[in-house]
Amino acid sequence: MENKLSRNLFMIPYALWIILFVVSPILLVVYFSFFDIEGNFSFINYKNFFTPVYMQMTFSSFWYAFLITVLSLLVAYPTAYLVTRTKHKHLWLLLIIVPSWINLLLKAYAFIGIFGTYGAANSFLEFIGIGSRQLLFTDFSFVFVAVYIFIPFMILPIFNALDNLNPSFVYAAKDLGASKWVTFRRIILPLTMDGIKAGCQVVFIPALSLFMLTRLIAGNQVITLGTAIEQHFLVTQDWGMGSTIAVFLIFIMFIIIGLTGFRKRGA
C-alpha cells in the first residue's frame, strides 16, 4: 500500500509533464489542423495536403532525407569500424563527436563562407584545376552540410553496436573458414543491425524536417516539410495548414519508430 502511494507521489511531476508537454501539444496540433485560415472548422487543410503540390514536397523531403541517411551511413559505418579498431577508441570517438557539440548555426555559417564564390572550397577547386563553380545554394551543398552535421549521430549507435560485438563470433567464423566478406555479411552486419537502425532513425526524422539549412545553405530552393511548417507558423500565420503538415510528420515519425523500434538516440 505504502509502496503504491509513494510511487504515485513520485509520479506526479513526471505525469504532469507527460500530460502537459507530450500529450496535449500533439492533441492541440491535431485540433488546429481542422481549422482553415479564417478560423472555420473544415477539412480543407487535409484536402490541400493531398494535392500534387504538397505530395511533391513530401516526396522530395523523403528523397533528400533518404539521400542524407544513406550517405551518412556509408561514411559512418566504416568510420565507426575503424574507430573500434584503434587503441584509444573512446578518445577517437570523442574527437569525432566534439563537432556535434558546436552549435548547428555556427556550423551552417562556417559553410556559407567556405562554399561562397570566393571561399575556401572554390580556391581548392581552382587549385586542383577544376575551376571555381557555384557551390553555395545548390542541392549538393545542402546534402553535404546535412550529412556532415548528422554523421556523428550515425556513428555513435553503430560504434556502440560494434563495440558490444563479441569478438569470439568473428574468430569462430574465421576458424570455420569464412572469408572476410562472408564474416562481415553473415556475422558483423546482422549483429550490428540494431545500431544501424538506431542511427537511421536518429538521422532520418530530423532530416525530414530540416528548416534552417534549406534557407541558409540551399537558398530556399529545397523545400522540406519542416520548411513548410516554419513558413506556415511564423510567416503566413496559417497555423491550420502548418498543423496539418505537422500531424502528417508525427504520423510518419510513429511509422518509422515502429519500423526501427523505440530506442534512445545513440543508445
Binding site: L28, I205, S209, I229
Partner: peptide
C-alpha cells in the same frame, strides 16, 4: 516522443500550447 520528434514540431506545438 519528445526525443525523436523533430525540433520544428516541438517548437510549433509548444507555440500553440
Amino acid at each position: 516522443v519528445l526525443i525523436v520528434s523533430p525540433d520544428v514540431i516541438i517548437g510549433a506545438s509548444f507555440l500553440i500550447l
